[in-house]
């Protein structure tokens, strides 16, 4: 089942002195349950694409079909509110959408229990490490029970060691909760270690350069994929595509 479809999407930004085409004639789709990565060079308009999907921006041309009320958006930094406890942070989305029913709250609490963060429920975010904060941010995103998760380089603010383990955790949580995810990244290894399918984008204006079906789908963890002998070869290939796209 298709959960997201973009058809010939174009986005142009206007300023006083110039117009910039951020996205040009972009089409792709995401199936239910898939983990898809959008891989492109820095500044190619990846974040713009997520903003378009989330409905934060209107496309200049083209069509986007998605359930916008069922989207969970995870940003580069955790963006936990420092003046709210972890409990009130994870309930933020439900609060905003007036969906604070006992069932939904229970569900959010269960996620905290399940992923080992319950002991911090009454703590403030500054008591948590970067990795834990990012996991709380994911639980906050999942609490509203979205159909589609948008992940905007969610690990880029973490140091390398933490990034590897949080990447594993986040992947694990997303798979266990049977969520569809669209990850945006410029990091080839991150895309390879998580995605079932990688959509390689050109530099700005972003277009689809090629779509890469992962050879590593059967390996259950991102870390496992990184250790696979195929990983290096695929990395080289994708790197070639990206370099070709840059020139």
């Amino acid at each position: 089942m298709k959960i997201l479809e973009l058809k010939n999407v174009q986005k142009i930004f206007y300023t006083k002195t110039q117009e910039t085409t951020a996205v040009e004639n972009l089409s792709f789709e995401v199936q239910n349950g898939e983990f898809v990565a959008l891989l492109g060079p820095s500044g190619c308009g990846k974040t713009t694409i997520l903003s378009l999907i989330a409905g934060l921006l209107e496309p200049t041309k083209g069509e986007i079909s998605v359930h916008q009320n069922a989207i969970g958006y995870m940003l580069q930094r955790d963006q936990l509110f420092p003046f709210r406890t972890i409990r009130r942070n994870i309930l933020l989305g439900l609060e905003i959408q007036h969906k604070l029913t006992p069932d939904n709250v229970e569900n959010a609490y269960n996620l905290l229990h399940k992923y080992g963060l319950w002991e911090y429920v009454n703590s403030y975010p500054n008591a948590l490490s970067g990795g834990m904060r990012q996991r709380v941010a994911l639980i906050r995103t999942l609490a509203t029970n979205p159909e589609l998760l948008l992940l905007d380089e969610p690990f880029s603010a973490l140091d390398f060691q933490t990034r590897l383990s949080v990447c594993d955790d986040v992947y694990d949580i997303i798979k266990k909760e049977h969520k569809t995810a669209l990850l945006v990244t410029h990091d080839i290894s991150e895309a390879l270690s998580m995605a079932d399918r990688i959509i390689v984008l050109t530099k700005r204006p972003a277009k689809v350069l090629t779509i890469w079906e992962s050879n590593l789908k059967d390996i259950p963890t991102p870390l496992g994929r990184r250790e696979s002998p195929l990983f290096g070869k695929d990395f080289e290939l994708l790197h070639g595509y990206l370099r070709g796209g840059v020139v």
């Binding site: 989207i71 940003l75 963006q79 905003i96």
Partner: peptide, 14 residues
Amino acid sequence: TDGEKILLLRSMRA
């Protein structure tokens, strides 16, 4: 006020 946090709230349809 942190623009990213506003973005987060907007993505929640606030």
